[in-house]
């Protein structure tokens, strides 16, 4: 049986008051939001007001739909929502993002109309592949993914363009080799 936290009635009261627009409840929740998001402020300073707004909207949406079930305190729940939203916001600012996994199914790794479970497995495969490359490879490829040209990367890293291109190629080959090994292992070959 799930143990109900002692503050659950206070939390549910606060949720109800917040949703009906009670000023004090809004102020309390707003203070928590600010506290929780504060560590992201330097990275998100340009969009700070927008982010606070986005967090409020997301929290309101989740509370309205009953997502807070009292498994933790409301404050902890809110903290998690805030951190989720801030990380998502940081990531949306990335210069270049991969759009989907379907384009990668050149080896038939994904079934047609991939189910979420299969996509999760594919995602785990990607994480395993990357974890077996080096930190330097990861850094190089992050610059590629952020949209830097090879000239920019060469200047930033202080290496010749030729050297840079060879290093990035070696990292790519390493990733593909690890992938092939992992797939063979999982196939029992």
């Amino acid at each position: 049986m799930t143990e109900i936290p002692p503050t659950s009635s206070r939390d549910s009261d606060l949720v109800q008051l917040f949703l009906v627009g009670d000023g004090e409840a809004i102020r309390e929740v707003d203070t928590w939001i600010s506290q929780a998001a504060w560590s992201f402020r330097q990275r998100l300073s340009e969009d700070w007001e927008d982010i606070l707004q986005e967090i409020r909207l997301e929290l309101t949406r989740l509370l309205r739909r009953g997502s807070f079930r009292g498994d933790s305190s409301l404050k902890t729940y809110l903290w998690r929502v805030v951190n989720h939203t801030c990380i998502d916001r940081l990531r949306r600012r990335s210069r270049w993002r991969w759009q989907g996994l379907d384009d990668l199914d050149h080896r038939g790794v994904l079934a047609e109309g991939a189910r979420q479970g299969v996509r999760n497995e594919f995602r785990d495969l990607m994480l395993r592949v990357v974890s077996q490359t080096s930190k330097d490879c990861h850094k190089l490829w992050q610059l590629v993914l952020e949209g830097y040209s090879y000239r920019e990367m060469s200047q930033q890293l202080g290496v010749s363009e030729a050297t840079l291109r060879v290093r990035v190629l070696r990292c790519r080959k390493k990733a593909v080799a690890v992938r092939d090994n992992l797939l063979e292992e999982s196939a029992g070959v």
């Binding site: 991969w98 990668l104 050149h106 990357v130 490829w141 590629v144 993914l145 990733a175």
Partner: peptide, 9 residues
Amino acid sequence: SFAAAAFNT
């Protein structure tokens, strides 16, 4: 393409 997706995971 695969390597890009992997490093972007």
